[in-house]
Design a protein around this nucleic acid. Structure first.
Length: 448
RNA sequence: GGCCCCAUCGUCUAGUGGUUAGGAUCCCAGGUUUUCAUCCUGGUUACAGGGGUUCGAAUCCCCUUGGGGUCGCCA
């Protein structure tokens, strides 16, 4: 059974980098008929932010990625961690360190001054004496003193970390007794039965520490896949300052969740020349071992294209529902000119609602004296007979011997206020003669 | 700075010793369209640099350069 997880820390909203990681985990679990789990990393009490948790869950709901079990909150598992800390203490694999923060800071400064790597010096590792008064100790793990730790990463290959320049006896529990990140990650992954850890490669350098924990506790080491970051246009790690990184912002801007997922899955992964993937196809085809080694730069153009594709795959009924409006044939008329639902909404309004103003450039070009004359003739014709708007249009063009644009363009301006729109014939059919008459009279009356 | 990772069109990518280096997006041009959009056709643009290995390197090795990540009693 393949069990994967996504483990965000609730410091804010879910951003697209996180969503991609979650998606990778989700797909891999589903492909193997396994489980995808969600865990909130809030060991640090100051990090437990109800709002943020809600925001993250809301985003997952929107895109439709569900955890297969109840969401795990680390803040509720302190007893479990306590138990393992005690165990390591008893077995002599961890120890109390009475060094104060100030002493530690000083040590670090000195080391940096000497151009050495800041590193705990192990002064309490084998301490037997009486502990200093009034100091709440932290708990440190006994890390190996030399040799190497190998991370067998399924994307990047085997990576060797020399203990001497990557590890020290790091803290697994703070002075207040609360456990630290690398410690609980290893425990929770093991206890939750996680077999495959797919996460950002900013965690790569944490992995040796976690391996130390796995080994100390006798847990099996899972498969690691460290996926490259998504960078912003400047080539830097995506941060909250980089515009629309909040997943829910994409909802507000009119992107479809399936389009966003499709966009994200192609960042760092591909399947031949295939660009469009339904969720089922992704599940069938995705393999984290095929993820690229290099970072990719986030670029919205492709997303816009994908979103347009998905919008056009949808029926008018579905789109009406998404826009929360009643179905109208107008949607069919305009959907192929929209990259987002927001645009679609605007395009629908442009036709359904009467123009409140007329574009001056369009007027200047297509509402000259002859156009006005033709428009008046058209208006009279449809008012005084049963002729359809379409027939009236072509009959006038024929009798006057003028090109289509001479009359169609002023009609268009009357109908929607600008010189660009879908076919005027189609619009007139949908609007009906009365409304066409009204809008033409309005233009004639308001613009001299 | 130490350690680690990475390097093909502007961007996302295909490519695993022999290809006119392919696709997508973007951009441009032409066609279609009463207009705009769609659609169709075509086009511009890439193996970071230098050494090897080899009959032959985008593909393997090394160096340089460039970029990124990480170095907490944060996660």
């Amino acid at each position: 059974m393949v069990i994967t997880r996504f483990a965000p820390s609730p410091t804010g909203y879910l951003h697209i980098g996180g969503l991609r990681t979650a998606l990778f985990n989700y797909l891999w679990a589903k492909r193997n008929g396994g489980k995808f789990l969600l865990r909130i990393e809030d060991t640090d009490r100051s990090r437990h932010n109800e709002e943020a948790v809600k925001a993250i869950l809301e985003a997952f709901e929107w895109v439709g990625l569900e955890s297969d079990d109840e969401v795990v909150y680390q803040s509720q598992r302190h007893e479990i961690y306590r138990k393992y800390i005690d165990q390591l203490l008893e077995e002599g694999k961890a120890y109390r360190c009475y060094m104060t923060k100030e002493e530690l800071d000083k040590l670090r400064e000195e080391q940096i001054a000497r151009k050495e790597r800041p590193r705990y010096d192990g002064r309490y590792r084998d301490f037997q004496g009486t502990p200093p008064e009034g100091i709440e100790p932290v708990i440190r793990i006994k890390a190996p003193l030399d040799g190497t730790i190998v991370v067998d990463d399924k994307i990047k290959g085997k990576i060797e970390f020399r203990v001497q320049d990557t590890l020290d006896d790091f803290i697994i529990a703070r002075a207040d007794g609360s456990p630290t990140y690398n410690f609980v990650v290893a425990i929770d992954d093991a206890l939750m039965g996680v077999t495959d850890v797919i996460r950002g490669d900013d965690h790569l350098s944490n992995t040796p520490k976690q391996i130390v924990i796995y080994q100390a506790l006798g847990f099996d080491i899972p498969n690691f896949y460290h996926v490259p970051m998504i960078h912003n246009e400047k080539g830097k790690k995506l941060s909250k300052r980089d515009g629309a990184t909040d997943v829910m912002e994409y909802k507000r801007e009119g992107y479809l969740p399936e389009a966003l997922l499709n966009f994200l899955v192609r960042l760092g992964w591909s399947y031949g020349d295939k660009e469009l993937f339904s969720l089922d196809e992704m599940i069938k085809l995705f393999d984290p071992k095929e993820i690229n080694k290099s970072a990719s730069i986030y670029n919205i153009e492709k997303l816009n294209w994908i979103n347009r594709e998905y919008i056009n795959q949808k029926s008018s009924e579905e789109l009406a529902q998404l826009l929360n409006i009643s179905p109208t044939p107008v949607i069919e008329l305009v959907k192929n000119r929209c990259s987002t639902l927001v645009q679609l909404e605007q395009e629908v309004k442009k036709i359904v609602e009467r123009p409140t103003q007329y574009d001056s450039k369009s007027l200047k070009k297509h509402f000259k004296e002859l156009n006005r004359e033709l428009l008046k003739e058209f208006l009279e014709k449809i008012q005084n007979s049963n002729i359809s708007c379409e027939d009236a249009l072509s009959s006038i063009l024929e009798s006057r011997g003028v090109g289509m644009a001479k009359l169609a363009q002023p009609i268009r301006i009357a109908l929607v206020g600008v010189a660009q729109s879908p076919s005027v014939v189609d619009i007139m059919k949908i609007l009906g003669k009365d409304e066409v008459v009204f809008r033409i009279e309005k233009l004639l009356a308001e613009v001299q």
